[in-house]
Measured scan of single mutants.
Amino acid sequence: MDETGKELVLALYDYQEKSPREVTMKKGDILTLLNSTNKDWWKVEVKITVNGKTYERQGFVPAAYVKKL
């Protein structure tokens, strides 16, 4: 869990989004888990830094590609 009590997951593999509802992740990324009720796709939040500014983006990743921490 992070400092706000949200559950975290670890990306076990790289994943490139294939639709606007998904998010890209790299092996080793730590993501915030938002919803894991679907056994195949989990909703996560990723933080992306571009030119020194951090953005948060929500989307789905394959559940088999992440592990709860």
Results as ranks from 00 to 15, higher is better:
R57G: 04
L31G: 07
V66G: 01
D29H: 04
D14A: 06
G52A: 06
L8E: 07
T54C: 10
K68T: 07
L10Q: 11
K68S: 08
G5T: 15
T24C: 06
L10H: 04
Y13A: 11
M25W: 01
G59M: 04
T49A: 09
Q58K: 09
K47V: 13
E22Y: 04
K6C: 11
G28H: 04
D29V: 03
E3G: 11
V44N: 00
K68I: 15
K67C: 13
S36Q: 09
S36K: 07
K67N: 05
V66Q: 01
L34M: 07
V61H: 00
D2H: 11
L10S: 04
N51M: 11
R57V: 07
L8T: 08
R57M: 06
A11T: 04
P62D: 01
P20S: 12
F60T: 03
K6G: 09
K47Y: 10
N38A: 07
F60V: 07
D2S: 11
E7W: 11
R57S: 06
D40R: 12
E3M: 08
D29Y: 04
V9S: 02
T37Q: 14
R57K: 13
I30V: 13
F60C: 10
Q58L: 05
T24R: 05
G28F: 04
V50Q: 11
W42E: 00
T32N: 07
K27Y: 04
G59L: 04
I30Q: 04
D14E: 05
V9D: 00
L8G: 03
K26W: 10
F60L: 09
L8A: 06
Q16N: 14
V66A: 02
Y55L: 14
N38V: 04
S19E: 08
D40I: 14
L10K: 07
T24Q: 04
K68P: 09
T24V: 02
A64F: 08
R57T: 06
V9C: 10
T32R: 15
V50R: 09
Q58G: 05
T24H: 04
Y55C: 12
N51R: 09
A63D: 01
E7F: 10
W41N: 02
N51T: 06
S36T: 11
G28T: 01
G28K: 02
V61K: 00
A11Q: 01
P62G: 01
E7T: 13
Y65G: 06
K43R: 10
V50P: 04
D29C: 05
N38C: 08
N38T: 06
V46T: 15
I30W: 05
K39I: 12
G59A: 03
I30Y: 05
W41C: 06
K18V: 08
L12D: 02
D2T: 10
P62W: 03
F60G: 01
K53R: 11
K39V: 10
Y13K: 14
L34W: 04
P20L: 08
S36E: 15
K18L: 09
P20K: 10
E22I: 03
V50E: 12
V61I: 08
K68R: 13
K39R: 11
I48P: 03
S36W: 07
W41F: 06
V44T: 01
T54M: 12
Y55K: 12
K68A: 07
D40Y: 15
V66M: 05
E3R: 05
D40K: 13
L12C: 07
D2G: 13
V66E: 00
R57E: 05
E56R: 14
L69V: 12
T4G: 14
I48T: 09
E45D: 04
L69R: 03
V44A: 01
G52K: 05
M25Q: 01
M1Y: 09
T37L: 09
P62T: 01
F60E: 04
V46A: 10
L34E: 02
E56P: 15
T4V: 12
Q58H: 09
Y55F: 14
Y15L: 00
V9T: 02
S19P: 04
L8P: 05
K47E: 11
Y55D: 07
Q58N: 08
K39N: 13
L33V: 05
L33Y: 01
L69N: 03
G59R: 01
F60Q: 03
G5K: 13
N35D: 15
N35W: 06
A11C: 10
K53Y: 15
L34T: 04
K43I: 14
T4W: 11
V61S: 00
N35A: 09
T54P: 11
I30P: 01
S19F: 05
P20I: 10
A64M: 11
K6V: 14
Q16K: 14
D29E: 09
V44Q: 00
Q16Y: 15
K47W: 13
W41V: 03
Q16I: 14
R21V: 11
T32K: 13
L31A: 07
K6P: 13
Q58M: 08
E56T: 15
T54K: 08
E3Q: 10
W41P: 00
V9K: 01
N38K: 06
Y15D: 00
E3H: 08
V23I: 15
Y13L: 09
R57P: 01
K18Y: 04
K68L: 15
G5F: 12
L12P: 00
P20C: 09
V44L: 03
A63C: 06
D14P: 05
G52W: 05
V23S: 01
A64N: 14
E56Q: 14
E22N: 04
V44P: 00
K26V: 09
T4R: 09
K6S: 10
G52L: 07
M25V: 11
Y65T: 07
Y15S: 01
G52E: 07
T24L: 02
K67P: 01
D40P: 02
W41K: 02
T37S: 13
K27R: 10
W42L: 04
V61F: 00
M1T: 15
R21E: 13
P20E: 11
K26M: 08
R21Q: 13
D14C: 05
W42C: 04
V23K: 01
W42F: 07
I30F: 04
F60M: 09
S19R: 08
E7G: 10
K47A: 09
N51H: 11
N35T: 07
E17P: 14
Y13Q: 14
L12K: 05
F60K: 02
M25E: 00
Y15W: 11
T37P: 03
W41Q: 03
E45T: 09
K53P: 05
Y55P: 03
M1E: 14
Y65V: 06
V61T: 01
Q58D: 07
G28L: 02
W42K: 00
M1V: 15
V46G: 09
T32G: 08
T24I: 03
E17V: 05
E7R: 12
S19L: 08
G5M: 12
E56N: 14
N35V: 07
K18F: 05
V66H: 00
K6L: 13
T37N: 13
V50W: 08
M1N: 13
D14R: 02
K67Q: 14
V44F: 00
R57L: 06
K6R: 14
K39A: 12
G5A: 15
N38W: 05
E22L: 04
R21P: 04
V23R: 01
D14W: 03
A64E: 10
S19C: 08
E7M: 12
E45P: 00
A63E: 03
L12R: 04
T49H: 11
M1R: 06
E3D: 13
V61D: 00
L69A: 05
K18A: 10
Y13G: 05
F60H: 04
L12V: 07
